[in-house]
Design a protein around this nucleic acid. Structure first.
Length: 171
DNA sequence: GCCAACGTTGGC
DNA sequence: GCCAACGTTGGC
């Protein structure tokens, strides 16, 4: 029968992937994202995270929004990527905290994606809850010493966290 | 507030 | 190219 399942719908060949973005709520909270309706994820200044933003994270991907250094530390919402990676404008703004005088506009060093909120979790899915889930034992967020602020999430982890948060996928 | 883990910087 | 010193992250 058919050998190419998605050709008729015009769907992208790449399957949707999943990510977790950390933010300190005092710096940029879920509520702020909801108020803004959309934002560019600026200020990531780590090469591993940069590579994900530039090369891996794509329009339509799912994002778990996690509050770090917070009470409680928790996944508080689900967002989606609404624009592929592009150079972080703040790196070229001398007055920005994120200014990088060594970044060459012809070959920008730092990248962002745009995200928009999809749904808040019914209640914060706390770090403690996540740690209690056997299925989430390998989640990067929970590994000792893991500091990556933009990190991959497996499909299994994604589904489980959404389930814990009472969020039904709808896009 | 502490401190382990990690990344970056710079002297050699 | 090594590595000690330093700064940052972020859970505890």
């Amino acid at each position: 029968m058919a050998t190419k399942k998605h050709s008729a719908s015009g769907e992208a060949a790449r399957p949707r992937r999943y990510w977790l973005f950390k933010s300190e709520p005092e710096s940029y909270s879920w509520d702020q994202l909801v108020a803004d309706g959309r934002t560019f994820w600026s200020g990531v200044r780590n090469y591993q995270a940069r590579n994900l933003l530039r090369d891996e994270i794509r329009l339509g991907d799912g994002v778990l929004f996690y509050h770090s250094n917070a009470k409680p530390m928790a996944v508080v919402g689900v967002a989606r990527v609404v624009r592929d990676g592009y150079p972080d404008p703040t790196q070229f703004e001398p007055k920005s905290d994120y200014h990088d005088p060594d970044s060459d506009p012809g070959d920008p060093r730092w990248f962002v994606v745009d995200i928009a909120p999809v749904a808040a979790t019914r209640a914060p899915v706390t770090r403690e809850q996540l740690k209690d889930e056997a299925a989430l034992g390998d989640m990067m967020l929970l590994q000792r010493g893991s500091r990556l602020s933009v990190q991959p999430v497996t499909a299994v982890e994604w589904r489980r966290v959404l389930q814990l948060g009472g969020v039904k996928e709808s896009w």
